[in-house]
Each structure stands twice: as C-alpha cells, then as structure tokens.
Design a protein around this nucleic acid. Structure first.
Lengths: 210, 210, 210, 210
DNA sequence: CATGAATGAGGTTTCATTCAT
DNA sequence: GATGAATGAAACCTCATTCAT
C-alpha cells in the first residue's frame, strides 16, 4: 500500500480523528480504547501510531479541533450588517441551529473542552483560554456598538455582559442535553426564547424609569 | 453490627466517600485508583469492599451525594418570606457564596453530575433528572408568585424561565472556573452582577411600552 | 496474604531477583520477558511490580548485585598473610575455583556488567567503574608490596600491571566459556596455568641480565 | 539479474549490512529496528527483505562478517619473516593499532561475537569456534617456532599459551573500553605495554636460573 | 473485621514482517 | 524491484478485585 498520495494519508488521519471523535463524544476519553478507535476507523490498533504518536496526542488533536474554527469567527460572520441587538439575537439563533443539527454533539464537545481546560496542567488550557478571549472580544465589540447606538444600557460592563451571555448559552446547552435527546429541540427553543426575550430588555430606560 | 457499633461502620463508610470525593473532584473518576482512595481514607484497599461493592458503586454514591441534599431544598430555604424577585436574587447570591466557599469544588461536582447524567445508560440519569424537576418546581413557584405580584412579566413561560435561569447559573459556574481559581471570585462577581441586574428587568411593560 | 512478615517480603523480592538472574544469565536482558521472570519465580507478572517499579530497575538490581560484594573484597581476603606473589597466585586460583563452581555463570554476569557499563548513559557505569577502581587499588597494593619485597620487577608500572592482569583474568573467563561448558574446567586449568607460570616470571633482572 | 546488474544487488546487500553494523555496534542488536537499518541504509524497510530473509539473518550476517576475514589471516600476515617473539610483539601492536583506529568498534564487535557464541543454540557458535581454532593454529605455529628457536621456554604448552595470550588481548580490549573512549588510547598503551614486557620474559632460563 | 499481597484481564505501545500499489 | 502503510503478536505495565492471614 505504499506510494499513497498525501491526500489519502490526510484522509486516513482525518478518519482516525473522526472515529475518535465519535467515541469520545459518547463515552468520554477514558472509556475509549485505542482498539475501539481502530475498529471504528476500520484499521488495526497499531496503524493509529503512524498518524498520532499516542493516545494523548489524539485526545489533544480532538480538543484542538473542538476549539479551533472557533466561535469567535462565527460571531463575526453572523449578520455583520445588522444592528447590534439584532446581531446578538441572530447569533443566539445560529448557535441553537448548530446544536440542533449536531444532535447535541457540539454541546458535549464544548463542555469536554472546557473541562479539559480546568484544573489540568495540560497545554490545552491556554488554547481554550485564548479562544475564549477572542470570543469575548468579538462579543464586546457588538455590545459596545449596541451601547453607542442606545440599544443597550451603558451601565452594563461590556465585558461582564459578554462573559455572562456566553456562560448562559453554554449553560443552556448542557441543560437541554440533560433532559434527553428527544426533547433537545423543545428545550433549546424554550430556553433560547427566554434568552432572546431578555436580550430585548437590555435597553437603557428599562428599570431607570421605574 | 458484631463488635463494632453501627455508628462506627457508618462513619467509616462516610470517611471513604469523603476521601473519594476529594480525589474525584480534583482528578476525575478515571484518574483515581481504589488504592488512592484507601490511602486518602487511611485504610487498606481491601477494606473499601466491605462498605462498597466496587468502584462503580462508590462513584455512584458520590454522584448521589452531589445530587442529594439538593438545590431544591436550598431554594426553598433562602429568604422564604421575601418578595419573589428578592428571593431569586437572594438565591443567586447564596449560590455565589457557596461556590466561593468551596473554591469551585461544588461547581465541578455539579458539572460532573450533569455529565454523568448525559448519554449514560447509568441509573444516575433518572436521579439527576428528578432532582432537576424538584428544583424547577421550586423555582416555578417563586416565578409564578412574582408574576402574580406584578414583579415578573406574565408573558414569560414560568417553566422556561426557571430552566433558563438555572442553566445560566450553571453556565456562570463553569465559565468562572475556566479563568483559573485565582480569578474565581472576581469572575463570579461580574457575571452574577449581570444576572441580578437582568433579574431586575423581568417586570412587565418593560418593552411592551416600546 | 496480608500481614506477611518483612522477612517473607524480602525473600520474595529475592526470589524474583534470583529468577531474573537465572534467565538473564542464559538469555540476556532483552530476551527475557516479565512474564518469563514471573513464571520462573512462580508468581503472576503483575506481582513483580510490587517489588520492582519496572523492568529497568530489575535489570539494574541484577547488575548492582553482580558488581556488589565486589572482587575487591575477595582480593583482600585471600591469603592476606602470604608473600605478595603467592597472594596473586592464590587469588588467581580462587577466581578459577569460583568460576568452576558456578559453571561459568559468574563469568557471564561479569561480562554482562562490563557491557552494561560501556557506551550506555545508564547510571550503572559509575558503579562499575567505582568497583573497578577499588579492585585496582587492592591489586596495586599487593603489587607494590611485591616490588618492595623484590619479588616483582620495579620497572613495572603497578597500576598498568594491575589493570593488565585483571584484563587477562576476565579474558580467560570469556575464552573458556567459548569452548562450551563441558570443557570449561580443562580450559580454565590450562589458561590459568600459563598465567601463574608467568606471574612467577615477574621478578627483576629477568631480562635485565640479557 | 533482470534489469539491475548483480553488482548493484551485491552493493545494496553490502550497504544494508554496513548500516546494520553501525547501529549494532553502538546500540546492540535488540535496540536496533529494521526501520533504523533501512533509514541508515537509505532504503525502505520492506526492501531489506529482498536481501535478507529477516532480522535474525541480518544479525547472523553481521556476526559472520565479524568472525570472517578473521584474525587468523591477520596473524599470518604480520611480519611473517621476523623471528617468532618479534612476530608476537608485532601482532600485539597491530591489534592495538586496529582497535585505536576504529575507536573501539572492533572491540565491541569482537565481544558481541563471543557472546553470541556462548550459550546460544544458534549456528553462530560453530563458526566462531572454527575461527578460533584457526587463530590458535596460527599462533601455535609461531610459538612452536619460538620454542625451537630458544626464544620461548619449551615447558609452555604451546596451545595453552596461545589461548591464554588470545584471552589476554581480548580482555585488554574490554578493559580499555570500560574506562571510556577518551582514555582508550592511554589504557591500551599501558596494558599492551605490560603484555609486551611479559612476552619478553617467556624465554627458557627466566626463572630456572632463580 | 482489616490487611495488603496476589491475581489477571485489559490498556497502551512497539516492531518484524507482509503485500497492494 | 522498491515502497511504506498496515498488520498482529507480543511486550510492559496498571489496577479493580479477591482472599489467605
């Protein structure tokens, strides 16, 4: 099987990572053996080691992929011309759509990544934190634009609001998963509904008038 | 019950669980050996098996404990006489305080419990879901009281709002942990600040006037 | 099997090392598996790890033992009151006797130790070299006494002579083994015979007269 | 012999063996992989199997080469016209020179060969023993000539003396290596110095006069 | 009852060898 | 003929669990 094109090799590497991904998503890193991954990828266990030096690196590659592509890019892409508040709402809807499409897989990979970044001396931590900062920056930009446009109360600390909204969205994902996959759509609908309703209440005069 | 009192046996059982808890919190279930737990509890590895049939059951007992005691009870206890919105705010503050006190341990156990309840054929799932339902019921009660009192816009679906707020709080916990334990207090402060600010905007007419 | 006396544990540790020794001697480190050792010692493979952290350490312990006890001590013990030349001859005979008694095992362990000390970044190297230095010192002492007593030509560099004699003895061991174990005795006899004959020719004036 | 000349094939076979040799010398048989050899030889791992049926055979070919060419030939070539004792001394010097030139590699290959011949059911044993016999014969011839010429005491068993001297030289090699490569030259110098000095004392009247 | 030494299944990884390209 | 990806049989090692003491 020699003299295979680089494309084929890349595809194989990708196959392995995808096989690992499928298993990691459903069983967690520790409950997946190299043999499991090999079987899922349709190769022998030893073959994996041509593509990844060891299990750690495979896990790392998986986490890297989860972080990579990154939500920051997504945030910037969604409705870039719409008014700030509309953009935030559009982003929330986009996240909801993605989660639904992947049947919750993305939610799990997201939380796995977060857990890997917590209390671990791994080098995954910095990567996660970096992606988070970029995401925050993108959100802060929108929020500040909203504040300048009078759509969002300037009394909000933009960064705190960005973090809190991000936390909220993440929390919604986990919460929705908890009720089981059959109800995923309905639960997301309800919780994102509340979130969007509340986004509409971020304006300045809201409680100031009371 | 032979020569040793039942109380002693119970205490031992408790010691073991506590030892396991300490280790599970910091290293995850899979990176803790029975020997680790035994050493931490100050007994021999074999002795654990007199109190728990196996590791799985020990993990199960740990998760049970995380769920048990339950947030539902907490919700009912906090400021039961205050007006509904004030109660919600008091609950949020109480959670913030607890998390701070345990240096984030409670956040981790919470997310561990949630993960255990997701996509696992374990019998932990129903237990988690049951605790959640109780929590939701407690929250819904407060929210509906708030709606009756005119503090919360009746257009909100009480259950959806309860779920969403719960998700938000959980999300804040994870988010705060992600930035490292040194910044835990500051991050919690900021994100709970936003949450509370927004709780104050749940009243009717807020955007209805627009 | 708990609460076993320390003596029993030590004995077990010793059993394992001895089992390893038997196998190492006949097949070399690399051709002996942990399972082989376990079987030879009459235990399970996993049990070895209670006594030695890993294979490397077991090899190390074996080499340490080969070096330890040390030939230096032997040299000092043999015929300490005899005149120097007689002592050297007695030492040679003692070595011959030991080798014969162990059917050549000691020769093999000796050469294995030497090889382990050569071109290896191991920490066994220094240990071997240290033992060698002690041996040399002991031999030099005897040689110099011989020179003072007029038994050995003072033109010999004592250290060079010690090293050379040591090399000779080692070489004789390997050479004798090469012809097969059946002829070990005869070969040793012949080569040590020559060595002793030559020891008798170390005196001064030997060729100075020519 | 299809499209590639036999000479080319032979050259390739030689390349592989040489690559193996380099690696075997420095790391031992067991710590060299077929891939290592292939890389060192500049070919692919699979290609080796066109030239050697397997690793065992490659090791065997290496050992064969170490034995072959053989010291016996060397002994016959060195100063064939000189008087016997001078020849022995010249041979010793030649060996010393060779060892120095190869930075000790030859010493290692020599001892590797010897070890392979000991306690191994391999077919390398006979080969080694055969080479030894030839070497002994060559040495015995010189020694006996020396005895006839009155240079060497006739009381020596020629064969025993040959074996013993051979053992001595081999021992010197290993001993010199043990002190590290930086001191190789100095150590060889010293030990061979003693050996030559002693060769000069093999004459008849040596201790008979005493 | 507790102990902790032993077991043995199972995990990760290596590497000689094969064979489709 | 060469290539080098794949195989698969071990090898080393870990750890939940058992059971003689």
């Amino acid at each position: 099987m020699a003299r295979v094109t680089q494309a084929h090799l890349d595809a194989r590497r990708e196959d392995i990572l995808e096989a690992a991904q499928n298993l990691f998503l459903n069983r967690g890193f520790n409950n997946v053996t190299m043999q499991d991954i090999a079987t899922e990828a349709g190769i022998s266990a030893g073959a994996i080691y041509r593509y990844y030096p060891g299990k750690d690196e495979l896990v790392h590659a998986y986490l890297e992929r989860c972080v990579g592509g990154g939500p920051a890019a997504l945030v910037r892409e969604i409705a870039p011309e719409a008014p700030p508040l509309k953009r935030l709402i559009a982003i929330a809807s986009a996240v909801q759509g993605m989660w639904l499409e992947s049947s919750g897989d993305q939610i799990i990979s997201d939380i796995q990544t977060k857990m890997a970044g917590i209390r671990q001396p791994d080098d995954i931590g910095p990567m996660v934190r970096d992606a988070r900062e970029q995401l925050f920056d993108a959100l802060i930009e929108i929020i500040e634009a909203g504040q300048r446009a009078g759509e969002i109360d300037p009394k909000f600390n933009a960064r705190a609001l960005a973090m809190s909204l991000n936390a909220w969205v993440a929390g919604i994902g986990v919460e929705a998963l908890e009720s089981g996959e059959e109800q995923l759509e309905e639960q997301l609908e309800q919780m994102f509904g509340v979130l969007i309703e509340i986004l509409n209440r971020l304006g300045p005069a809201a409680d100031g008038a009371a």
